[in-house]
Write a protein that binds this DNA or RNA. Structure first.
Lengths: 199, 199
DNA sequence: GTCTATACGCCGATAGAC
DNA sequence: GTCTATCGGCGTATAGAC
């Protein structure tokens, strides 16, 4: 407690602090409503100049954020696929993960699923072409191949399943659904699963 | 053909021309990526000053656009509810309408469902509290009351049903789904309907 | 109703001292 | 690595002539 007088100043602003602050701001207000001044304030810098020590410009912050979230999600999905064989189990755990993130790190879900990334990350891949989503599509492919899921276009299975899940998450994040989150999770899983399961 | 030399100039720019041009631009590039200069170019004005004849500022354009689209949708839904009794028929026609709009006026669907309106229309109501969506919720309420739909929270029925429909539309608009649109419609309807129907 | 001209603010970004 | 200072530019918006 002596090496750092517990006051308002930071010795050093780290790259990660900037990313975390930017994530919150981008998720809550949008990229274009967030100025570097906002970010600078959030990390207790006096001017925006310090940000440029870590990122070459504003867009680079968003790109790094996007990459980090995708990486982390990709790793989680690898883990899920390693621990589970059946599509039902893998999808179940994926839904668990997404609901857990919605509760514990809503900004991550907001940024990843509901912010219009293409409006400021024109160069980046579309979500469906990123590593984690390619892996998710593979879950559906394998489930259909193995006869666990209905025989249909895997992309349609993905569309229906995640239509329900992501719309539910969106309604939760917006506050439109606000009574019993755990119950929403169980029901949404069931509804989503029923759209793809082979009966 | 003499009263108007068919050239590049307009005698007068109408309010509706501005709205149509703005809709396209907002839907395709986003509100913040669209400057009044872009809009002015799209309607063949020399400067942005002319726009202020019709709208007090940029936000007012978006507000008018939003109101127009909601009005038009609300009227269509009234019509659907008048012509059909059963929830299945009403929802079916609503899905027809949304897919038709996606084909014929993709910018309308893009703007209404997929643009993050709250980022620049902070003052406006949330989508679910607008007239057309209140009416849509009523369809679900009535369907449950009449025993046509599963007994459950009407808002959840809405969430699942429109999760599937809107995600399908989003995948179509993004080009991720691009093979057989009519087939997507039939299948999406079925999948969505099955999430809410009483079996 | 459309134009010229212009004001003004905000924001992203950089140079250079400490 | 953080600061002061500052720049250029773009975008919104207005005043006023035609």
């Amino acid at each position: 407690m002596d090496q750092e007088t517990e006051n308002t100043h930071k010795k050093t602003v780290t790259q990660d602090e900037i990313l975390q602050a930017a994530l919150k701001l981008f998720a809550n207000q949008g990229y274009f409503n967030t100025s570097l001044t906002d970010i600078k304030d959030a990390v207790n810098l006096k001017t925006t100049a310090g940000i440029y020590q870590h990122f070459k410009n504003k867009q680079a912050i968003a790109i790094a954020l996007y990459a980090n979230i995708l990486d982390s999600l990709s790793i989680s999905i690898d883990d899920i696929r390693r621990r589970n064989r059946k599509a039902s189990e893998q999808l179940r755990e994926l839904v668990d993960l997404l609901f857990k993130l919605t509760e514990e790190a809503p900004e991550v879900i907001q940024f990843l699923l509901f912010v219009k990334l293409d409006e400021f990350l024109a160069t980046e891949k579309r979500l469906l072409d990123t590593a984690p989503f390619i892996k998710i599509k593979k879950i559906f492919q394998a489930g259909i191949r193995d006869g666990e899921l209905r025989t249909c276009d895997p992309l349609l299975a993905y569309t229906y399943f995640f239509g329900i899940i992501s719309h539910t998450l969106k309604m939760i994040l917006s506050g439109d659904l606000n009574k019993d989150i755990d119950n929403y999770q169980a029901q949404a899983w069931l509804a989503a699963w029923n759209t793809v399961v082979k009966k």
